[in-house]
């Protein structure tokens, strides 16, 4: 049966929403060794340059976590990000929208696209993979249509905001912290969050206590869409003129961050805050590779390797631990 042992969660872990404590240690370790691998990678300018990208990835990965919690996988992340960016930058530039309105649209409309994903998956019984892959293509087409093939520039106000600092901390990072803490808090401490967990753990059990299973699942997809929107707005502001299809490079990292954060791909408990930490880890790792001169394509390989390594360890380690324990128990008996 389950290998869970009756341990008592430490308080901090309950507050932060569980997940893998390994990623916290790994992240601390990474920052400690960084200066030894590449001098200057812990300098103020390096950190400040890295944090906005970590922020964007963290927010998007939190959305992916919500979908994975419901035993789905969202392959529409690339187009969702591109869609949000095209709305935030394209609507003011090509259609003369007020920047504020465009930013609202860039968050709400990906949310609507997520809602459609959710409805297609839950109401119509389409496999999440197929639904989100299809949605990815549809949104990329929409991006193309909005921009007419040319990337637009971020509204000045948004760029100033995203590139700004609060004290010495980049605003984008502060936004990420606020968004993730709020979502993490809701996931962990609200009625809605608990019901999402219940549905993710077991649809039949949730149905048996009267939870509207499809409604909650659909909500998870919609909320995920909105977080991709927020992430893309920040990205737009920070890089000023985002390439049309920049989102392609965000699919694997979001999945990797979810897995590293400790949310199981089989659904159930989500670890939103740990996902955020994993995003920080992945971004710093990339930064490190870059500073020792690895080209971009090699980074892809490194990310893939990290992801495969982690899921492999997850699969192998519990078995080894169980075998150790068993042989230890046998040894105790025979001793």
């Amino acid at each position: 049966m389950s290998t869970t042992t009756p341990t008592v969660d430490p308080r901090w872990r309950r507050i932060l929403g569980g997940g893998s404590s390994a990623i916290w240690y790994a992240t601390i370790l990474l920052f400690v060794v960084s200066p030894f691998i590449a001098g200057g990678s812990l300098s103020y300018s390096a950190i400040v340059g890295m944090l906005p990208f970590a922020a964007v990835l963290a927010i998007a990965a939190v959305g992916q976590t919500l979908v994975v919690q419901q035993r789905g996988l969202d392959l529409s992340v690339p187009a969702m990000m591109a869609f949000g960016a095209a709305l935030a930058s394209g609507l003011p530039q090509w259609f003369g929208w007020a920047p504020g309105l465009a930013i609202a649209a860039a968050i709400v409309l990906p949310g609507v696209a997520g809602l459609v994903n959710g409805i297609v998956v839950t109401r119509f019984g389409v496999m999440p993979l197929v639904a989100t892959l299809g949605m990815n293509a549809i949104l990329l087409g929409t991006v193309f249509a909005i921009s007419n093939g040319t990337p637009a520039g971020s509204p000045q106000g948004l760029a100033d905001f995203a590139k700004g600092k609060i004290g010495i901390v980049p605003t984008a990072f502060v936004v990420a912290v606020v968004v993730i803490v709020i979502l993490g808090f809701l996931a962990q401490r609200s009625i809605v969050g608990r019901r999402l967990t219940a549905v993710g753990v077991s649809e039949p059990a949730a149905a048996a206590i009267g939870v509207r299973v499809t409604l909650y699942q659909t909500m998870a997809y919609a909320a995920a869409g909105a977080t991709y929107g927020i992430a893309s707005v920040l990205y737009t502001g920070y890089v000023t003129t985002p390439p049309l299809f920049f989102g392609d490079s965000y699919l694997l990292p979001t999945v990797a961050a979810v897995v590293l954060g400790g949310t199981a791909l089989t659904g159930g408990r989500s670890a939103l805050i740990s996902t955020g930490i994993a995003a920080l880890f992945l971004t710093q790792l990339g930064q490190l590779f870059r500073s020792v001169g690895w080209p971009e394509p090699l980074q892809l390989i490194a990310q893939a390797a990290v992801l495969l390594l982690v899921i492999l360890l997850r699969a192998i380690v519990p078995g080894i631990v169980a075998r150790r324990r068993r042989s230890a128990a046998v040894a105790n008996v025979t001793a």
Binding site: L73, L252, P297, I301, A304, L312
Partner: peptide, 26 residues
């Protein structure tokens, strides 16, 4: 990877896909 360790095929092939992409652009 999928059969021996009972890993999720989507995640495995996604990772391999990205690794291949990295290799070919290298």
């Amino acid at each position: 990877l999928v059969t021996r360790f009972n890993l999720n095929p989507v995640v495995v092939t996604l990772a391999i896909a990205l690794a291949l992409q990295g290799t070919l652009f290298t």
